[in-house]
Nucleic acid binder design. Structure first.
Lengths: 231, 231
DNA sequence: CCTAATAATTAGGTATACCTAAATCGATAA
DNA sequence: TTATCGATTTAGGTATACCTAATTATTAGG
């Protein structure tokens, strides 16, 4: 019994499985496959099956699991996943606002600390930050009650034609990409105009009032969420 | 291989063993017995032996261990122990100063987080706090280079007669005791006068200029370090 | 100097969270 | 309908960090 740290039986690993399922199942709460979890978490598919069976068999089941049919979060699993996600985004905001971290470094630190902070820590940084609802990447922060407002943003990679948008959020998973986007002025709230799209070359976009365009790969476009421009 | 988190092969458990050895071996760097480690860490003596053998056999040994003769930290072990101790005390100071934690709650949170913060986090909170050298309990914070200034304070429990002192530090290990001490005005920097001592009943002391005395058990006296009053 | 008590170690086992290799399931294409 | 292929699961192992019970060292007393 090494983990006397979590009396709630939620280890760091369990937390990460729950977060991954939350993220991959999307707002529509689709069933999530073992393979996509294995990819997302970087572990062997067999390990996924093992863990899902364990999570489903717990006294308070954290997932709903059927062999060969993927998983869904149970209410308890969803609750915990949202709590960890809240931790993650509060910590990111805190590192960025209070400790002056460069934006591309907040994710990695939050990814570790999210599992270990207490209720008190959560509450104190939230208070210090004025109970923020959005993190520095533009993602919304679940409430203490486990509610998360979903904006109906779309991925830049789903945009087919030209048009004007406001940048909703930017993925935090790749620090290098994030640093490059920052350098181009791509950050939540900025306006973005799609000039041209080609299946092969990706996108040609411009930011703000500038007429200078630059290229974005499809991969980069997969990390940028947009809202229709209100203008 | 669950802990890809620590490429340096220092798990949370290893960190805790190193810290315990550092603390128990004292400024004189006495050899530390398995039993005292088992007590301090709350694990079975057999587990101690196992871990010490592992730490001593590592490519870069973290302890010097001889069967039946106790352990000492190796240079590498001492370096890591002081790094973790620095983390602990910086985090405590940070929680107290920046996040307005009650003094008796900082220890437990720091105990968890000390293992997981990055170099950057350490550096940022140190900067934010103005590179403090003393934590809120009066303990000195090791430098980034792994040096720790030792003041030659004495334990209240070692005081035999009457006398006047300045409180150097207060143990953080028991939140309840710490809360009671705080309520009595016992905190680093305050002056303390020992009025009476009896082997059975403990101490009768007064704080500051007050003539009001109160009682301290021997147990409480074991958590209070004193410096001679300079007056 | 020997023995009894105490301290420390060895032996053997548990749970977590991974892994690889082998087996099996299920969806589709002939 | 069935053969096939990719997805998934089962079987069997590893390492960490604990545990208890049994054994062996050390040390202090008679």
């Amino acid at each position: 019994m090494p983990a006397r740290r979590r009396p709630n039986s939620n280890s760091e690993s369990v937390d990460n499985y729950l977060k991954a399922i939350l993220s991959l199942s999307g707002p529509e709460r689709r069933r999530v496959t073992s393979t996509s979890l294995a990819d997302h978490l970087g572990v062997a598919p067999a390990s996924i099956t093992n863990m899902l069976q364990k999570l489903a068999a717990a006294t308070v089941p954290l997932v709903e699991y059927e062999r060969h049919r993927g998983v869904l979060l149970s209410p308890a699993g969803r609750r915990r996943a949202l709590e960890v996600l809240r931790h993650h985004r509060l910590i990111e905001t805190f590192l960025y606002e209070i400790l002056d971290y460069p934006i591309e470094e907040v994710h990695e630190e939050a990814e570790r600390l999210e599992h270990f902070i207490s209720e008190r820590f959560e509450e104190r940084i939230a208070a210090k930050l004025g109970h923020p609802r959005i993190d520095p990447h533009g993602h919304s922060i679940p409430t203490m009650e486990g509610e998360m407002t979903e904006r109906n943003s779309i991925l830049l990679s789903e945009v087919l034609g030209e048009g004007s948008f406001v940048i909703d959020s930017v993925s935090d998973r790749d620090p290098g990409a994030l640093r490059r986007l920052k350098a181009s002025g791509i950050r939540p709230g900025a306006s973005l105009r799609v000039r041209k799209r080609s299946a092969a070359a990706g996108y040609s976009v411009s930011i703000g009032r500038s007429s200078r365009t630059f290229a974005l790969s499809h991969e980069a476009a997969d990390g940028i969420r947009l809202l229709p421009s209100v203008k």
